[in-house]
């Protein structure tokens, strides 16, 4: 009664408000609890699955033989075979066959992995043989970079259905050349383009990382086929040198044209810089510039 009166004094609406807040809080807590419960359930399922997997592995280890055991079996078989030729010496015990099958499985898996590591196109079939998904790996000097994927519809004429190749790679143009007639040729050209692009970009990344203090990237474009670099001069009052690298062959990571410019008009034609120009044509930019820095030609 007292409460009610109190409430009436404070106003019913106010009271309702308090109740609503409490209700909301309660439902939030319940929600949280439910979420936690479902997470615990998920975890329990996961634990059960992993336990089963572990038991399976242990069972598998029991059904197969170790190398030593297999050696013994094969040796014994061979001896029996020699003793009694009429017996079917070639047949194997079930256990040893299982071991060999599993061993071959591991070997094939390793070979597939090796194909992947050496940059082979990873091919997987989709939609019951109607389509294939092909991955093209890119790398530059030991570093694995992006992998690009193409999904091809091969049911009639070969068509590219989906891909994640950057829009500035001339995919359409390349496809027109030989996608229908020479799929391998097409993939090879595309792979060269993608690797050329990845290689050019990686060189710029390395310059920005390793030669931060001596070389500044003034200009570059999405394809990384026109690059302007500013190299600091080692002398204090020296003038900066601008190197422009142009890559007219998009499938390559080495430039086709190198221009050296400086406020000091005579500098580009000095033997030292002439030599550097040809070095830049034959060596990746970060390596060439590192060599120039070592020689003290740039700061």
């Amino acid at each position: 009664m007292e409460d009610a009166r109190e409430c009436l004094r404070d106003g019913v609406l106010n009271h309702l408000n308090v109740l609503e807040i409490e209700a909301l809080e309660l439902s939030r807590q319940q929600q949280l609890c439910l979420q936690q419960q479902s997470r615990v359930d998920d975890l329990r399922i996961m634990v059960d699955k992993l336990r089963a997997q572990k038991d399976q592995l242990k069972a598998r280890a029991k059904t197969t033989m170790s190398l030593q055991q297999l050696k013994a079996v094969v040796h014994q078989r061979n001896e029996e075979f020699n003793d009694d030729i009429s017996e079917e010496g070639c047949s194997m015990t079930a256990k040893s066959q299982l071991s060999f099958l599993m061993a071959r499985k591991t070997q094939v898996k390793d070979l597939l992995q090796a194909h992947h590591l050496i940059g082979g196109y990873d091919v997987t079939e989709t939609c019951r043989g109607k389509g294939v998904c092909i991955s093209i790996a890119t790398a530059f000097e030991g570093f694995y970079l992006e992998t690009y994927n193409l999904e091809l519809d091969v049911s009639r004429a070969i068509q590219i259905c989906r891909h994640n190749i950057p829009p500035f790679i001339p995919l359409e143009k390349l496809a027109q050349v030989n996608l229908q007639t020479d799929l391998m040729g097409f993939l090879s050209t595309l792979s060269h383009h993608l690797n050329g692009f990845a290689g050019r970009r990686q060189q710029i990344r390395l310059i920005q990382e390793v030669l931060r203090d001596s070389v500044e990237v003034m200009e570059s474009n999405v394809l990384f086929n026109t690059i302007v670099l500013m190299c600091a001069d080692p002398e204090e009052n020296g003038r900066a040198v601008l190197c422009t690298l142009e890559y007219s062959d998009l499938s390559r990571y080495l430039p086709t044209k190198v221009t050296i410019e400086s406020e000091d008009k005579a500098l580009p034609s000095t033997p030292q810089w002439k030599e550097s120009q040809s070095l830049l044509l034959q060596t990746p930019a970060h390596t060439a510039l590192k060599a120039l820095k070592m020689k003290g030609q740039i700061a």
Binding site: T64, L67, L70, K71, V74, C90, M92, S96, Q97, S99, F100, L101, M102, A103, R104, K105, T106, Q107, D110
Partner: peptide, 15 residues
């Protein structure tokens, strides 16, 4: 399994 393969390459084929 890798050891088995390197010792019994030909047997695996028979299996």
């Amino acid at each position: 399994e890798r050891e088995v393969i390197s010792h019994f390459g030909e047997h695996t084929q028979r299996a």
